[in-house]
Amino acid sequence: MSAPQEELQKTPLHALHLELGARMVPFAGHAMPVQYPAGLMAEHHHTRASAGLFDVSHMGQLRLVGPDAAAAFETLMPVDVIDLAPGKQRYGLLLTDEGTIIDDLMFVNRGSDLFVIVNGACKVGDIQHMQDRIGSRCQVIPMPERGLLALQGPKAVDALKRLVPGVEKLVFMTGAGFQWKGVDLFITRSGYTGEDGFEISIPGMQAETFARELLAQPEVKPVGLGARNSLRLEAGLCLYGNDIDTTTTPVEAALNWAIQKVRRTGGARAGGFPGAAKVLAQLDGSEALTRKRVGLVALERVPVREHTELHDAHGMGSQAMRVGEVTSGLLGPTVDRPIAMGYVPPKLATPGTRLQAIVRGKPVPMEVSAMPFVPNRYYRGPAA
């Protein structure tokens, strides 16, 4: 007999998703909307043009509390936590002792604590990892009682400021507390679509009412996981479990930008994170990389999915050598062509390099491409 399936958890917006006609799928242990009746393509284009509302309540929210919290958290990641100013947000990477990626996350210095958002599929392990490693230095407090909404797109600010005046003053990668009808919100100007937008932490009990008010705004439509995936891939952003995992280091994943200078070279705070010897050796070139994450564009209109083998462009059939693998891929709705990310040897990582993807036994010509595939439109403040 097969083992009984574990019952899926439901987000605070579950009933609303069903009411809106969402197609629900299992994702990170939750029942989540993959798309609504309008469909993935329409939801994707609407987010790029206006404002899409995403339920991301499956993700893990937690607080790190105590005077030593920043210094403690910094011991787990190759990231500058101590110097992050209040109200500022940063991207971080939890690493194994071998320097590979346990999870990628976002965190904000809220002055009184560090507010951390981790991936849904990793949250139980992440929280346990933090409690085991730094629980004696600060409190690690999960926040399962809160929902999380993402409002993304160029008109997100227009819709949200009607409900929460003042959010328009936030700029990319900043956050602050707000009130909505007496409810405490914490809002960051960030997201994972490449567009301007916001992530809104709200008590779960009020999440549905707030979501309904957002959906009543003329700019806003609901968007599911399918379009969230196509948007993040066009933005050149990694999906944990596909493009990064415990087999990849930050340098292999081309995430060097996430490792601030103070953690790299010289000074008391250089190194000191799990796997530092390996990661720093890859950064300075003393340990050669065997692979690197790249963007890829198909030269024929054939979608190239994850786990597709990549071969060199020279030689055919048995003479063509396997050189890598696609980790994410689909037909990009905005660019209207097949795009992908994958890993190849560094000598093949230069934009313009030709490769072959083997799709159903047939070679599809691919070209290494710079990322993002669609220019990011984050709001960094009024133009000078």
Rank of each mutant, 00 (worst) to 15 (best):
H58W: 05
H58F: 04
R63Y: 10
L64G: 03
V65Q: 01
G66Q: 08
A69I: 02
A69Q: 02
A70F: 04
A71D: 03
A72G: 12
A72F: 00
M77F: 05
V79Y: 04
V81C: 14
L84M: 08
P86G: 06
P86I: 05
P86F: 02
G87D: 05
Y91G: 12
Y91V: 13
L95R: 04
T96Q: 03
E98F: 07
T100H: 01
I101W: 02
D104E: 10
L105T: 10
L105C: 14
M106L: 09
N109H: 10
N109R: 07
L114W: 01
L114M: 07
F115P: 01
F115Y: 14
V118D: 05
N119A: 14
G120L: 06
M130E: 14
Q131D: 15
D132Q: 14
R133W: 01
I134Y: 02
I134R: 12
I134T: 11
G135C: 11
G135I: 12
Q139M: 12
V140E: 06
V140D: 10
V140M: 02
I141Q: 15
P142R: 08
M143L: 15
A150D: 07
L151A: 02
A156Q: 00
A159R: 02
A159I: 04
A159Y: 08
L160N: 00
L160H: 14
K161A: 07
R162C: 11
L163F: 10
L163E: 13
P165M: 12
G166A: 11
E168C: 09
E168D: 15
E168P: 04
L170M: 03
F172C: 13
F172H: 15
M173Y: 14
T174E: 12
G175V: 13
W180P: 01
F186W: 07
I187D: 00
